Amino acid sequence: MNHTRPALGAALALALALALSACSSDDGGSAAKPTAKASGSHTVDTAMGGVKVKNLPERVVVLNTAGLDSAITLGIRPVGATGPGAGSGTEQPFPSYLPASKTKGITEVGERNNPDLKKIAALKPDLIIGDKAHDGRRYKQLTAIAPTVLTGASDAAWKQNFRVHADALGEKTRARQVAATYKKHAAAVTKAVGGAGAAARTEVNIVRFVAGSDIRILGGRTPAATVLSDVGLGRPAITKQARGGLSYDVGAERIGRADADAIFTSTYGNPGLAQVAEATTSGQWRGIRAVRDSRVYNVNDELWAQGVGYTAAGQILSEVESDLGV
């Protein structure tokens, strides 16, 4: 049995709004403040070396979901951000798990893999945030527009990257508050699923159906998997075989390898091209423990497979608590 939820239910939306209000300005806008501190600058340690930035940048452009999540989490509304691009399965310019009220008014500046440098320059940013894997090759062009802060990969290092973003945005104090709140939330979810012992004995898989590609059993280095780890949930042995710690790929005929006590499933792109029906109507699928026990939960791919940052992680925690809580 598959349990399906809307991308952002009313209760979750309320919880998120309350969480964000604790660390955001009333209007959700820039973090700029009319203080002496705002007129100074400081150096941020980035994947490209030290970068000098304004203490409190006022016009921020973000080139990845991690940067957008960080800014929104810290109560900052960027002036520009890249969109997901073709094939993402969504017509929305920004991730649906982020509150629309917080992304309203942000200018889309091209696709994630192909940002429009002219649109970025036209926004007159005083800070650009991205990552080395995607933006390293255009670093010189970006730095010609504004100081550019690039982090490493958006995987298990997402908390470290958040700290870099917070430093660049002049919000290190607020970032520590966010991290502390998340830690308490994770501890509460551990308690809700029966405590540390019960959590460790519960093997959980994340299975992603991808249009035009193999089915992915997500490994321990994906952001969502690190959230499961923070709760203390167990992971099946197959996840240790994930390539680069990211995914172990199988065809529909080998879906039985996803066996676990509980499974969270998501779909990227057209389900008809993602082997969803082929996999979930097979005998192997019916033999999976989570399927037999009705502990398969269909979740939002933009959140569980594409979401990176504390706002995404907080929502995943809430869903884990709702679905696995005892």
Rank of each mutant, 00 (worst) to 15 (best):
M1K: 11
R5I: 12
P6F: 01
P6C: 01
L8A: 09
A10P: 03
A11P: 00
A17S: 13
A19D: 15
S21R: 14
C23E: 14
S24W: 03
D26L: 15
D26Q: 14
S30I: 07
A31C: 15
K33W: 10
H42I: 10
A47I: 08
E58C: 08
V60Y: 04
L68R: 04
D69S: 09
D69M: 00
D69C: 05
T73L: 03
G75Y: 05
G83A: 07
G87H: 10
S88W: 07
F94W: 06
P95G: 04
S101G: 12
I106Y: 02
T107I: 10
P115T: 05
K119F: 08
I120G: 06
A121V: 05
A122C: 06
A122H: 02
I128K: 06
G130A: 08
G130I: 04
D131A: 12
D131K: 10
K132L: 15
A133S: 14
R138W: 07
Q141M: 11
T143W: 09
I145A: 05
P147Y: 04
G152Y: 05
A156R: 15
V164E: 07
A166E: 08
G170L: 05
G170I: 00
K172H: 13
T173W: 09
R176I: 11
K184G: 04
V189Y: 00
A192Q: 04
V193Q: 01
G194H: 02
V204T: 05
G212F: 13
D214Y: 15
I217N: 06
L218H: 02
L218I: 01
G219N: 02
G220Q: 11
T222Q: 08
P223T: 00
A224F: 07
A225Y: 04
V227K: 01
L228Y: 08
G232P: 06
R235L: 09
T239S: 12
A242L: 01
L246W: 12
A252V: 02
G256E: 02
G256K: 01
D261T: 02
I263M: 06
F264A: 03
T265H: 02
T267W: 09
Y268F: 10
N270S: 10
A274Q: 07
Q275D: 14
A277F: 13
A279T: 11
T280V: 08
I288S: 06
A290V: 02
Y297M: 04
N298T: 14
V299R: 06
E302C: 05
A305I: 06
A305W: 03
Q306G: 10
G307W: 00
V308E: 00
Q315N: 01
I316H: 01
L317R: 02
E319W: 02
E319M: 00
E321H: 03
E321Q: 08
G325L: 03
V326A: 14
